[in-house]
Simulated scan of single mutants.
Amino acid sequence: MDLNLLPLEIQEAHAAFPVALAACDELDALNRLKGAYTGREGSHAARLMDLLKTAPKEQKRDLGAVINGLKQAWEEGLKSRQAELEAARKQVAGLAAHWDAELPRPLPARGALHPLTRVMDRLVDVFRPLGYHVEEGPEVETEAHNFDGLNIPEDHPARGSADTFYLNAHPGLLLRTHTSPVQVRALKRLAPEITARGGIRFLAPGRVYRKDEIDPTHSPMFHQVEGMLVGHDIGLHHLKGTLAYAMKALFGPGAEVRFRPSYFPFVEPGCEMDVRCPLCGGAGCRVCKGSGWVEILGAGLVHPNVLAFAGIDPAEWSGFAFGMGVERMAMMLSQTPDLRLFFENDQRFLAAMGGLD
């Protein structure tokens, strides 16, 4: 069955089907999953039939065979799971007749930090031995802190209403699109003390917002951890050494990283860092798209305009900055195929995430 004939969304839905099916522990949940995959309207199967109708004539035969195979796999899986759930319900009903009413009540489940919070805490713990402290800032930001102070020009696409949530009732205010405004605020606050401190280094974890459609790898609300170091004669070798150390602390001493040139308005030069895919070991898989590498963060040397905006002399001081997505990091550490699972508050999934520590 050649799934490459199908849209990426359907391929990802098929890959997530076994996990979603196993998570159904009651018939209501199974029926919801059945509606999402094989329902008559709005389901993946319905979209496949629409795709078949509009496909070129020469592709219809092969595409139809793939679609039939996919639907059959879903229907058989649903039917098998339904039989298991019905058998389990009968067994529970039988056991209830022999229940000992004098047994002590069950203890309530113990609470725990959310997996994303634990990943952010883990990232902070990695950098604390290097002298980094945590800075925080508001989620409702000004354009000056979110864009101007980061050397993002007026005509940059990120400033458009198609990408950014602006507050209509409060012109000039928006939901921050990254945690970089915390860097601007921290630099401005600490600039008078920078000489006495001998430099600045900190992390900025938190929630950010962008107008992204919800899918297995995107969400309009997600989390970032950004870091910055400012000192004398800071270069790319300091940045690369720091990040290589952090990735080995996160993924193990055998973690391999590589750096690629890239562009971000607030750094010059800019780069992106990839880590050898921890899921396939570099052999190639769906997560790394067959390349053996996964993009993990963006970074670079702090642009002189960013330092100057904060009142720091770029002729005397230099630095580096980096930022990474917490959800992507959590997906890699836990081998989770769909970031939406982190927001659904399914207690079974959350309990299974103990390995993130």
Rank of each mutant, 00 (worst) to 15 (best):
P115V: 09
A97Y: 01
E86Y: 07
L70A: 08
A87T: 12
W74V: 02
E84G: 04
L63Q: 05
S80W: 00
I152F: 07
E136G: 11
A65H: 13
A93I: 07
R118L: 12
G94K: 13
A112M: 14
N68S: 15
K79I: 03
R122E: 02
V140G: 08
V92R: 14
A158Q: 04
D155K: 01
L103P: 00
P129M: 05
F127A: 01
A96W: 07
E76Q: 14
G69R: 13
F147Q: 06
G69H: 12
P129A: 05
R122C: 04
E136M: 11
L113Y: 14
D155H: 12
D148K: 09
V134K: 06
S161E: 15
N151S: 13
D62K: 13
Q72M: 09
M120E: 10
L116N: 03
G137Q: 08
G69W: 10
H98C: 09
D100T: 00
Q91F: 08
E75W: 00
G111I: 05
D155R: 03
H156S: 08
E139W: 07
E141Y: 00
V124F: 05
A83G: 13
V92E: 14
P115D: 12
Q82I: 00
V126L: 03
L130G: 04
L85Q: 03
A97D: 15
N146Y: 02
H114L: 07
L78W: 06
R128D: 04
H156L: 05
A101G: 15
H133W: 12
N146Q: 10
G77R: 07
P106N: 14
K71T: 03
A158H: 04
F147E: 12
A101C: 12
E102K: 06
P153G: 07
D155W: 03
Y132D: 06
A97R: 15
P104C: 10
G149P: 08
A158C: 00
L85I: 03
H133R: 15
E154C: 03
I67N: 00
V126D: 06
V92F: 08
V126E: 05
E86N: 08
E139Q: 13
L130A: 11
L78Q: 06
D62S: 14
